[in-house]
């Protein structure tokens, strides 16, 4: 069965490693913080100026001065630090953040990503996404395999305006874990009960399928 949003977040959480600083985008990526594997320690950075982001506050304890990049009220963990936006993006562009997880409207087989603009519709802006994708060494995209019309978002070439070029290494969808290398998608894992045929049929980009495709292990 295809994963739900939490399932995608759980699978991405398995990619976290002890000692990493991690930036989580808005939407599914935010959920990754709920599934940190036992025995490892990671720190979450939010680009509006906090390292050491904690869970949402208890009701009545919200602080208008303490938010994440999605403008949600948050808390600060012990050892957290606040800083300005220039220093924050210094951490990002300077590659001091080990992993960036973000959503996408489209991803292409050479690692391009589009997630900020649909021409002719309201343009909300790129926020920090262009800085993040241009600099991070390790970018995982959390997204649905197809759009609402059933069209694949895993493409040979992006059709929407790009956020960054050649930067995505891994994609986790409700159906599969895909790696991008040498200009192709490579099928690493499939969601429990999802067939290789279904993934192939919903992937527009070139997809390399090995003889054996293991199922994701999600509890």
């Amino acid at each position: 069965m295809a994963l739900d949003k939490d399932g995608i977040a759980k699978r991405i959480a398995q990619e976290l490693r002890d000692g990493w600083y991690v930036n989580l985008g808005i939407g599914i990526p935010t959920l990754v913080a709920n599934y940190i594997p036992e025995g490892i320690e990671v720190e979450f950075q939010s680009e509006n100026g906090i390292l050491g982001m904690g869970p949402f506050p208890f009701e009545g304890e919200e602080d208008a001065d303490l938010i994440n990049a999605g403008k949600q009220t948050i808390t600060a963990r012990k050892g957290a630090v606040f800083f300005d936006s220039a220093l924050s993006f210094g951490m990002i562009r300077g590659q001091h953040v080990q992993l960036t997880v973000l959503g996408a409207m489209e991803v292409s087989q050479n690692g391009d990503i589009a997630n900020w603009k649909i021409p002719g519709k309201m343009v909300k802006g790129m926020g920090g996404a262009m800085d993040l994708v241009a600099s991070a060494e390790n970018i995982i995209v959390a997204m649905m395999h197809s759009n609402k019309a059933g069209e694949s978002k895993i493409l040979k070439e992006c059709t929407l305006p790009l956020t960054g070029v050649g930067c995505v290494k891994k994609v986790v969808t409700e159906l599969a874990v895909l790696e991008i290398k040498e200009g192709k998608f490579h099928l690493l894992e499939r969601a429990p009960g999802v067939s290789v045929e279904e993934i192939v049929s919903k992937t527009e980009g070139d997809l390399v399928v090995p003889d054996v495709v293991p199922e994701m292990k999600i509890d």
């Binding site: 220039a86 993006f89 262009m130 241009a134």
Partner: peptide, 27 residues
């Protein structure tokens, strides 16, 4: 891009007329 906006303000105040950034290349 947000990091570029922050840095452009910082640069304006710090006497740096321009700078190179990877953000937005190819877009």
């Amino acid at each position: 891009p947000q990091g570029t906006l922050a840095e452009r303000c910082r640069a304006g105040g710090a006497g740096i007329p321009a700078f190179f950034t990877p953000a937005g290349y190819g877009t």
